[in-house]
Nucleic acid binder design. Sequence first.
DNA 1: GTCTATATGGCGATAGAC
DNA 2: GTCTATCGCCATATAGAC
Lengths: 199, 199
Amino acid sequence: MVSSTEEKIYEAARKVFILKGMDGARMQEIADEAGMNKALLHYYFRSKENLFKAVFKDIFTAFFDKVRFTLLSDATAKEKLIVFIDNYIDMIQANPYVPQFILNEINRDPRVLKSLMFDSGVEPQKILELFVNNPKVNESFKADPRHIIVSILGMVIFPFAARPLLQMIYFNDDQEAYNRFLNERKEIVKNMILKFIEV
Amino acid sequence: MVSSTEEKIYEAARKVFILKGMDGARMQEIADEAGMNKALLHYYFRSKENLFKAVFKDIFTAFFDKVRFTLLSDATAKEKLIVFIDNYIDMIQANPYVPQFILNEINRDPRVLKSLMFDSGVEPQKILELFVNNPKVNESFKADPRHIIVSILGMVIFPFAARPLLQMIYFNDDQEAYNRFLNERKEIVKNMILKFIEV
DNA sequence: GTCTATATGGCGATAGAC
DNA sequence: GTCTATCGCCATATAGAC
């Protein structure tokens, strides 16, 4: 696989930032991971903050679009939720550290979030309208549909974000057992949500 | 209110660490918050890491005990869950930044977690037994009861941990509206869980 | 473009006066 | 016990040779 120096830096930064966060990451560690000198990082990205923003923007946008895409399709509300839960868990299993990384950074510096929303042209009001005042959605849900989405996200993301703790106290630190537990969650979450929204 | 220098440091450290995390916090900022000089922090706690551990241990233990206490009572499984959800949301509303702080730190350095469990004398195996192989619990739940607990924790904690993002995209950054949303969650989560566990 | 060497600043930690 | 002054290190960032 051939990749430019800039791409190597970007990939290394992605790896390190996701694991250590903005505050915990070191430019030296990213340079080591990329197999080159520290100075090159500044040559291509000028500052640590720039590099971080480039990485965070892509990671955040990918996760965010996943949510948005599911909600924009013209499937029924129920179908949307099922597809969403399956896809989202698949995606997190492929990138298990990403949710905690995003949670950490949006709390560390919410300004980054605002500029991201602005740059990407996403209009919060539009997203809101996908739920509220949407007859197709409202007829399926008794509760404010935002509660449904937040419940799903919480049930799906939390077992990954709190893994070190949960694995230790509820699974005797057995990695394999915890992986099996994670695999079961698709069905659990789907059952829970469907049982709740069917009146 | 009178409080010793050591207590002032501890309280200031608690405030700053919860907001900035171990990596983001600065000893100078803690000193400012406590209204004294940086050197005093080292006089009383010797190092930043020591100070952090003192704070983290207490915060973690308080949250952890809350879970354990609810589970240890001899109420029925259903009663336990209801009390737990109410109490836990109350506690988080009083300390909204704590869950994200704990999540962040257990991922940053899981070793801290292990030494905490060791010091506190908590036996993970015992906690496990509160759920599995407990007839009183098993008769109430179809699913592995750990899925129930993880689902509750996720549904309760996530809206606080992801507040900056959720408030922006689903509530047009309206703080008051988001507070109302948080207040509604007790009933939502209880309904969801009860509907799921009643066969 | 890529490297070595170095500047610059900030942070944790300590020395020492009071 | 509490302060000021400062050490020593480490991290980001830059200068300059190749």
